[in-house]
């Protein structure tokens, strides 16, 4: 248990510091809650605040819309496939790079941060340029390729951080007791990285599900949920339905992210 540190009077946060900190946190949260409020407003033309009345009817309307369901299904499918690819390739890379030392390692590490270090628009336009040059028609698989590319990085980062916390002596002890590489992976490493894998997978899934910047370049005529949403932003007539979808999207992405946070908290691992 971390004991509460005793602080001398001169080393405590002043009232001003506290107010600034909490104001910053409030700034981060308030806009998100606005969405929840607006999903229930009876007003469907303006963004009038406070809402003149509250209703549940927009949920009903949105539920009956086939285009929303199609976009949702596509987004879930893309996120699932991209996450699966990322889990496989990201984990392989993490295992190869966790403790090894070899010539060119720095360059490879750089390659594994580039897709998230460069702005999404670069990834998007670059993939588009490549698809155009290769004569590849954009569609489901081009979206997946774009998403998997940055999802690999997310999984890789999560798994490699966990692998580096595993003392090398555990692997040696396992081999010393007669386990070969595969058995060591199954009985010692896998249980240790399982939560990191799960967390990385869920973050990757959430990121893919919500992605718009790369997707707009690689989707062709396909419409993922974020693309549907993006189009709605410029069509004021459908505002109440947009509100409802916004709330749904927030809830769908929130669950895996909260779970991932719980799974990666260091005090959750025994030992």
């Amino acid at each position: 248990m971390p004991s509460r540190r005793m602080r001398a009077a001169w080393d405590r946060a002043t009232l001003g510091q506290k107010i600034a900190a909490f104001a910053g946190l409030a700034f981060l949260h308030l806009p998100v809650w606005v969405i929840f409020l607006y999903a229930f407003t009876t007003e469907d033309r303006t963004y009038q605040f406070p809402p003149p009345g509250l209703t549940l009817k927009w949920f009903e309307v949105a539920f009956a819309r086939a285009d929303i369901w199609a976009a949702l299904k596509l987004s879930l499918a893309v996120a699932s496939v991209a996450t699966a690819i990322a889990l496989l390739l990201g984990t392989l890379a993490a295992f190869a790079l966790a403790r090894s030392r070899f010539r060119g390692r720095e360059l490879i590490t750089l390659l594994f941060v580039l897709p998230i270090a460069l702005p999404g628009i670069v990834t998007g336009i670059a993939l588009l340029a490549a698809f155009k040059m290769g004569g590849i028609q954009p569609g489901f698989w081009t979206i997946v390729v774009g998403h998997a590319t940055f999802c690999i990085v997310i999984v890789h980062n999560n798994v490699i951080a966990r692998l580096r916390r595993i003392p090398p002596s555990w692997v040696e002890a396992s081999m010393d007791l007669g386990a070969d590489g595969l058995q060591t992976f199954r009985h010692v490493l896998l249980p240790q990285i399982a939560t990191a894998l799960l967390a990385g997978g869920m973050l990757a899934f959430a990121l893919s599900f919500d992605e718009i910047i790369v997707t707009l370049f690689t989707a062709g005529h396909e419409r993922t949920l974020p693309i549907w949403f993006f189009n709605e932003l410029f069509r004021p007539r459908e505002r109440p339905i947009t509100n409802v979808v916004a709330v749904t999207v927030v809830l769908i992405t929130l669950v895996p992210i909260l779970l991932a946070y719980r799974l990666t908290r260091p005090n959750d691992t025994r030992g």
Binding site: A173, D176, L177, G178, Q183, H187, P191, Q192, T269
Partner: peptide, 30 residues
Amino acid sequence: FQRSVNTVFQDYALFPHMSVVENVAYGPMV
């Protein structure tokens, strides 16, 4: 894993996700 020697590690290297008896039974298990 193909040598007939075993090691006691400085940091003990006990597997944290296994109980005491599972740790000790690890060699026979594999």
